[in-house]
């Protein structure tokens, strides 16, 4: 099977000169490595995006069962709908409130674990295992923990003479309940990524700072925090993806309620598409979400792009 596969040009790791490539008949063969991946990428990512963008300018719901062009009607409808704005508020609240504290604590724990020699695996796994638990299972566990009468949390609260809380059943606490649970689930994953990042930090820097008399906190503030910048960027991206696509726990724990207080964008898309059968609105929401995600991508890469090598050289 190796016959016919052309010999690799020398120094494949470095860019070839364009001249060489033009001369070589194999330049089109190079695409062959990409074709299968590209095919699925286009089929399940870019084609859908184009399709839903088109659909978002169509009326398509229970009362008009065939897609019909309607201009920006769907977007106008959303603009004038309170629930849409509540959902957007909830989504951004969820993202900001859950991401930054999780990232910060993840880094702190990563540093603490990195400094330990004994029991590393124990610490890593005890923080990391929730990541492995399927969100559906975690949701069930936490529904039980949050349950108003039999749930651990309320039992503990009443042991201390505090009033029981409604948790998932109250619009004041429902989104917080989801955030706490998501924090529990993501903390270990972020911690592990930071721990991987810390392996690259030069230990001698700490020695030098120690000799200069810098305390633990100052040492890390001055050395670790700046040095894990690229890792933080990576964690940030992962965190944004994970929190923007939040769905499972909402579907299983609150169904967006009470009164849409825990409804976020992906769940709202699902609701409009599969519950209310308004595919036009659901597509418009998809378009909005895609634009937000692309904007965040551009923002992140624009702000910090130089730090990570994302361009092909």
């Amino acid at each position: 099977m190796l016959k016919g596969v052309p010999i690799l040009p020398r120094g494949g790791g470095t860019p070839h000169s364009l001249k060489l490539m033009k001369e070589s008949p194999e330049k089109y063969r190079n695409y062959m490595f990409l074709v299968p991946g590209m095919f699925f990428l286009l089929l399940f990512t870019y084609l859908p995006i184009m399709w839903s963008t088109w659909l978002s300018f169509n009326r398509w719901n229970l009362l008009s069962p065939q897609p019909k062009w309607c201009g920006v009607e769907n977007f106008l409808k959303l603009w004038n709908h309170d629930v849409f704005w509540l959902v957007m508020k909830n989504s951004f609240f969820f993202v900001t409130v859950s991401i930054f504290p999780t990232m910060f604590l993840a880094l702190v724990f990563a540093i603490l674990i990195d400094e330990r020699v004994k029991g590393r695996v124990y610490y890593i796994y005890s923080l990391f295992y929730p990541t492995l638990i399927p969100m559906a299972a975690a949701a069930m566990l936490w529904v039980y923990i949050y349950s108003p009468n039999l749930g651990v949390l309320n039992i503990v609260l009443s042991k201390f003479g505090l009033p029981k809380l409604g948790w998932l059943g109250s619009s004041q606490t429902s989104i917080w309940a989801l955030i706490i649970m998501t924090f529990w689930k993501n903390l270990g994953f972020f911690m592990l990524i930071y721990l991987a990042g810390l392996q690259n930090v030069n230990r001698e820097l700490y020695e030098a700072a120690y000799i200069d008399g810098a305390g633990w906190w100052r040492r890390h503030l001055a050395i670790t925090f700046p040095l894990v910048g690229p890792t933080s960027l990576f964690v940030l991206i992962v965190a944004i993806i994970l929190t923007f696509r939040v769905f499972d726990q909402i579907h299983l724990m609150t169904e967006g309620g009470p009164g849409n207080s825990s409804n976020v964008i992906v769940y709202y898309i699902y609701e409009n598409g599969f519950k209310f059968f308004d595919w036009g609105i659901a597509s418009a929401l998809t378009t909005i979400l895609v634009v937000i995600l692309l904007f965040l991508t551009l923002l992140i890469f624009g702000l910090f792009g130089k730090r990570i090598t994302y361009t092909a050289d």
Binding site: N149, G169, P258
Partner: peptide
């Protein structure tokens, strides 16, 4: 109680 979840309510009665 306000908005007791539908599925848990029988539990509350039984409990």
């Amino acid at each position: 109680p306000v908005l007791r979840p539908w599925n848990i309510t029988p539990d509350d009665f039984i409990g």
